[in-house]
């Protein structure tokens, strides 16, 4: 009996070693800074998902890390596995005396408010959390997705040859995604009313809509085959699938979303002309700085929405197009561009 038990354990050990060769992600913990008296601490709670999701969780965490470069503080994140753990995960940071807690995603809004009311000394940065009421100590970092979507639409309409452009989107259950699309459609129609914009949302629920790259890829392909030559992909990993698919086809362009996806999806370099970004990282850096300085704002904090750099496609984007983008932004801010409902 012992022999069999041990042989099984041995097999497990070997199997484990093989698997272990691909070391799993460890959670980064920076050693405490030099000042022993009181280290400033910044924590981050992700929405359900991982910190390296190439999307808002990752962008927020990168913001924390960027802020850390200038200011010396301790940082840590926790990944939420079960939506019911939001409170508990925030509490872990509070218990450890963290000064700033970044909570990512609208779904954490209620938990953030609850924690802020109980812990007025802690500053909370709520990424993508629109503040209906002002709660002291909570800065809701929000973005005008329609604006960056609009710029993407203008860019797409300017560079398209076929006059067919497409959008492959996560779910319409989430308003930021819808806003990106509204801006995209509105912007492209503003440049060229005759343009054919074909856009589609993932048909699944929240559980699959952002994590279905194969659907994104095959949908992008379906659009490409009916003439679309610019694909705007807005939908987490689903969108990443669409970007990579587009990169397989010569002479096409794709536009990423949320962050500069040039950095997060290198597979798409062949087509990625730009990304419709929300400057989550920079805004997080800014808010952390404000917190350190003791000037932390409460209520809504509008982060920047813009287009990411064009990287390899600088030459494709002519001065003319750049001017048009400027005009579009001005016109949008002057409420001169009408956006569709959905």
């Amino acid at each position: 009996m012992k022999k069999r038990l041990f042989s099984i354990l041995a097999i497990l050990l070997v199997a484990g070693l093989v698997l272990g060769a691909c070391t799993p992600k460890g959670t980064d913990v920076k050693p405490p800074a030099d000042d022993p008296a009181k280290t400033f601490k910044v924590g981050l709670v992700t929405d359900v998902g991982e910190v390296d999701d190439k999307s808002f969780n990752q962008a927020s965490w990168e913001g924390v890390l960027a802020a850390q470069k200038d200011l010396s503080f301790e940082s840590k994140y926790i990944e939420t596995k079960d939506a019911k753990d939001y409170d508990a995960n925030i509490q872990l940071f509070i218990d450890e005396g963290f000064d700033v807690i970044v909570t990512v995603g609208f779904a954490l809004g209620e938990a953030t408010h609850k924690a802020a009311k109980a812990n007025p000394e802690v500053a909370f940065i709520g990424v993508d959390q629109f503040q209906g009421e002002v709660v002291p100590g909570v800065a809701g970092l929000i973005f005008d997705e329609a604006l960056s979507g609009l710029l993407a639409g203008v860019l797409a309409a300017e560079i398209t040859q076929s006059n067919v452009i497409a959008a492959v989107l996560g779910t319409d259950l989430v308003p930021p995604v819808v806003n990106f699309n509204r801006g995209y459609v509105g912007g492209s129609k503003w440049v060229n009313p005759e343009i054919n914009v074909i856009s589609t949302y993932h048909p699944g629920g929240m559980d699959v809509a952002f994590t279905d790259p194969e659907w994104g890829a095959s949908t992008a392909k379906q659009a490409i085959e009916q003439g679309a030559d610019v694909i705007f992909a807005a939908g987490g990993k689903t969108g990443n699938g669409a970007l990579i698919e587009t990169a397989e086809h010569a002479g096409l362009f794709c536009i990423g979303v949320d962050t500069d996806q040039w950095l997060t999806v290198p597979e798409a370099h062949k087509c990625l002309i730009s990304s419709a970004t929300k400057d989550i990282s920079d805004s997080v850096v800014a808010l952390i700085n404000l917190a350190v300085e003791g000037k932390f704002p409460s209520g809504n904090y509008l982060g920047g929405s813009s287009l990411a750099p064009f990287h390899d496609f600088e030459s494709v984007v002519t001065d003319e197009i750049r001017t048009k983008l400027e005009e579009a932004k001005a016109a949008y801010e002057a409420n001169q561009i009408e956006l569709p409902e959905k």
Binding site: E50, G204, V208, G216, K237, N240, G241, E267
Partner: peptide, 15 residues
């Protein structure tokens, strides 16, 4: 899914 469809892996991507 990973070699021909997307060229990318994601957790739970079989959906």
């Amino acid at each position: 899914l990973t070699l021909e469809g997307v060229g990318l892996f994601e957790r739970g991507m079989t959906n």
